[in-house]
Write a protein that binds this DNA or RNA. Structure first.
Length: 679
DNA sequence: GAGCACTGC
């Protein structure tokens, strides 16, 4: 092991030597809130406090304020309170603060309610999907997910109950952040009294300033930079690139353990596979660990783990031991672990991209960005000065893109465009995007919406399109829900819709446990395919008391199943609102499958002799995903519809159900006639 | 015969 690092000196975010106190989206609840200091003096010690007057002045003078601040400056908890104290929530108006993640919205709201001295849900509350802990009359500061606020624009296009809206973590550029910013710019033209605060952790924030500054509003926006509260992080690069960063990551972690002082290690890799390989490498080396070295505790962290397994990474390392947490990108922003002193960064990340020509989503491993590498390094400096080892040469760092392309430029836009149309934004090319999605993606989405009958030839929403836009599901699934009336199977379709919306229902552990899990899963297997298998699993879950113990013994994810229950309850309300009957098909699987075809008819495929399928549209070679109950079996009719298609090493289809080819032909005719205007 | 970055409504 002769890896040579050199250190170009201290870099990374911030360098203020004070303990970070900003609450973030932790999996674990934050430590006890206050010790001896009063709430007021705690608040006054935050770095943001000395900018209070300036911030309030800017909110008076400008319509849009871009706030650049590192983690720990207190912007998320303090800014809404400053506005509140200055009277921005007078006369029943509300100050909103959006977060990209649910945990962040709830934990920050809890913290702020304590600071304000109110019960959560009273003056300070939060709104996330399935949970509204706020009062329409009394809540003045409302934390919410950005998706929730975007949804609110569908009901109240001017967001008239808000006096000020803070879009937090805007640098993450989630689809909803981008849609919201676009809509908010439009709203501010009609309602200039609304104040907008865009908060971002990176210096890239000038892009937001440019976005809100144009000839129509030349002096409307300003930018304020706040200092963070982070310890310095030293950055070291490899002198030469390495062929296998997984192996190198294990070796570097090993050397840190031998040569460096106390502190846990956080390793960034791209996926579960790499994480397991890295942990294997470390385990193989463990027997050779010198007696005087700290004992290494290797731990995995990725979204596929159960809550229990994820919580393990938060347990403090015992004396004489050191944790090595090998993680996906989940530890970059979603999960914060204290006590990390060393970060090992592979420099790669897996991102989803969407190819509108083939309508294929794919997952590919790409180099990270400068912004993301900086964020990763910062994970070493939360509680003490740290070191970040980048497993690539400095020259490679310098050639990285500044930031990862925003999500909106690389995902299927069907649902987003339906929602924008519902907001009355008919000319999508005139919509002021922060970053424009590629024209091909927009066109592809429009074409799909026309084919599904959501948009008419005039480019406007059809009556059913208007209703579907309100449903929080994909368009195909919504069509299926609406068509269940005709097929008299609303009860079952509702369950299937909910189950397809959650991923990773079946838990498959490694090794022998995995084989046992496979046997458990077979108990739910329906001959017709995966949709009915999911239906069986859901019905069994509710029949046996919705318990986590039952899930564990049947290889099901309790988290996923509980989510399905919530989604089903939510969708049920929409079905009732749209007067869709909740009839049961009474075990008539044929009716159920016909209804599935009515939603998924564009996703038809035909079995061929080598065990693969050919797509009806495009004759593409499709491989069945190994989780499918049809993975090993030829469907009797030779035809299936599938829920989704994704490109990994091969093009795979997930969640399949056997159908009769005539049913597809039926829908083809209907579509054709609709296009010709004869039906 | 074999696989899944991360969110969100």
């Amino acid at each position: 092991m002769s890896l040579k690092f050199w250190k170009p000196g201290t870099a990374g975010p911030g360098s203020n030597l004070d303990r970070a106190t900003e609450v973030e989206g932790n999996l674990v609840p934050s430590a006890p809130l206050y010790s001896s200091l009063s709430i007021q003096s705690q608040r006054e010690r935050l770095p943001i406090f000395k900018h209070r007057q300036k911030l309030l002045y800017c909110v008076e003078q400008f319509g849009v304020i871009i706030v650049v601040g590192q983690t720990g400056c207190g912007k998320t908890t303090q800014l809404p309170q400053y506005l509140y104290e200055a009277g921005w929530a007078a006369e029943g108006s509300v100050i909103a603060c959006t977060q990209p993640r649910r945990v962040a919205a709830t934990s920050v709201a809890t913290r702020v309610a304590a600071e304000v001295g109110t019960i959560l849900g009273d003056e300070v509350g939060y709104t996330i999907r399935f949970e509204d802990v706020s009062s329409k009359e009394r809540t003045r500061i409302l934390y919410m997910t950005d998706g929730m606020l975007f949804r609110e624009t569908l009901v109240d296009p001017l967001l008239s109950r808000y006096s000020a809206i803070m879009i937090d973590e805007a640098h993450e550029r989630s689809v909803y952040t981008d849609l919201l910013l676009g809509v908010l710019k439009k709203i501010r033209r009609k309602r200039p009294s609304l104040r907008l605060i865009v908060s971002s952790a990176t210096l890239d924030a000038t892009a937001f300033l440019d976005y809100f500054t144009d000839s129509a509003t030349p002096n409307d926006a300003t930018i304020i930079t706040l200092e963070g509260r982070m310890y310095p992080v030293e950055v070291a690069y490899l002198q030469e690139p390495v062929p296998d960063y997984v192996r190198t990551a294990a070796e570097v972690s090993w050397n840190i353990n031998l040569r460096q002082g106390p502190g846990d290690i956080l390793v960034f890799l791209t996926g579960r596979d790499e994480i397991e390989r890295c942990l294997d490498e470390l385990s193989e080396m463990l027997p050779t660990l010198p007696k005087n070295a700290p004992r290494l505790i290797p731990l995995a962290l990725h979204a596929g783990l159960s809550t229990d397994e994820q919580l393990k990474v938060f347990e403090p390392a015992e004396r004489g031991t050191r944790k090595v947490i090998v993680s996906t990108n989940i530890a970059e922003a979603s999960v914060t672990i204290d006590g990390i002193k060393y970060v090992v960064d592979s420099g790669y990340v897996k991102i989803r991209t969407y190819n509108p020509t083939t309508a294929l989503a794919s997952l590919s491993t790409v180099p990270t960005s400068v912004a993301s590498a900086t964020q990763r390094a910062g994970r070493a400096g939360r509680t003490a000065p740290g070191v970040c080892y980048r497993l690539y040469p400095q020259a490679a760092f310098e050639s990285l893109p500044y930031s990862t392309p925003p999500e909106i430029t690389r995902v299927d836009m069907t649902t987003s465009i339906l929602q924008l149309k519902s907001l009355g934004i008919d000319d999508l090319m005139k919509f002021e995007w922060v970053s424009s999605p590629p024209a091909e993606i927009v066109l592809r989405a429009l074409e799909g919406l026309v084919a599904a009958g959501m948009i008419g030839e005039d480019g406007r929403l059809t009556p059913i399109g208007q209703q579907v836009a309100e449903c929080p599901v994909e368009v195909g699934i919504a069509r299926m829900l609406f068509n269940s009336k005709e097929h008299r199977c609303g009860e079952e379709i509702l369950t299937i819709a909910a189950m397809t919306a959650v991923q990773d229902v079946f838990v498959i552990p490694e090794g022998a446990q995995g084989a046992l899990a496979e046997l458990e899963r077979r108990k739910f297997t329906a001959e017709e395919g995966d949709h009915l298998t999911l239906l069986n699993a859901y019905n069994a879950f509710t029949r046996y008391g919705r318990s986590s113990g039952w899930c564990k013994s049947h290889a099901l994810s309790f988290r996923a199943m509980s989510r399905a229950v919530s989604i089903r309850a939510q969708l049920k309300k929409y079905m009732q609102r749209f007067k869709l009957p909740l009839e049961s098909c009474e075990g008539d699987a044929r009716r159920l499958r016909r209804c599935l075809v009515s939603g998924y008819w564009r996703n038809g495929a035909r079995w061929v002799a080598d065990g693969t399928y050919r797509s009806v549209r495009g004759n593409k070679v499709l491989h069945v995903h190994p989780t499918s109950v049809l993975f090993t079996r030829k469907p009797r009719s030779g035809w299936v519809i599938f829920h989704e298609m994704e490109e990994t090493k091969k093009t795979q289809i997930r969640i399949l159900t056997e159908i009769e080819p005539d049913w597809l032909v039926d829908h083809g005719h209907k579509y054709d006639n609709a296009k010709k205007g004869t039906s």
